[in-house]
């Protein structure tokens, strides 16, 4: 299972491509895909957003669903989705919405 991620051009914020067609600031909103055709579709969306100067550093990453929540397979992506593991007061993990979700 894969999702599409990038960093927003203006401020570098880590973002994920959501099913509603926006770039969401939290990983929970990401659209997950399970086959090659959908992966290719997401890749095309990523390239278009890159070309359109919305995002940079676009990547398809591997995830799994753990109790219904999107969980990246690599620690790097876990940290990108949360914030520094040594500073829980920083990054997305520090936002009120993160706790509520």
């Amino acid at each position: 299972m894969k999702i599409l991620t990038a960093n927003r051009l203006t401020d570098g914020e880590a973002v994920w491509f959501a099913a509603d067609g926006t770039w969401a600031e939290t990983i929970d909103a990401a659209e997950t895909v399970g086959d090659k055709a959908d992966e290719a579709r997401l890749e095309a969306i990523g390239k278009a957003a890159y070309d359109n100067n919305e995002v940079v550093d676009v990547n398809l990453i591997d995830v799994s669903l753990v109790d219904g929540a999107i969980q990246p397979l690599r620690l790097r992506e876990v940290i990108r989705a949360a914030g520094p593991s040594n500073r829980h007061d920083l990054g997305k993990q520090a936002r009120p919405a993160a706790g509520a979700a």
């Binding site: 960093n7 051009l9 401020d11 570098g12 914020e13 880590a14 890159y50 070309d51 100067n53 940079v56 550093d57 790097r76 940290i79 990108r80 914030g83 520094p84 990054g91």
Partner: peptide, 21 residues
Amino acid sequence: TEDQFRPLRLMNGVYLQLHAY
């Protein structure tokens, strides 16, 4: 484009890291 900008930002100390620039 990013390809054009990247070397320029690096010359000025701006990297892109995991969470932000």
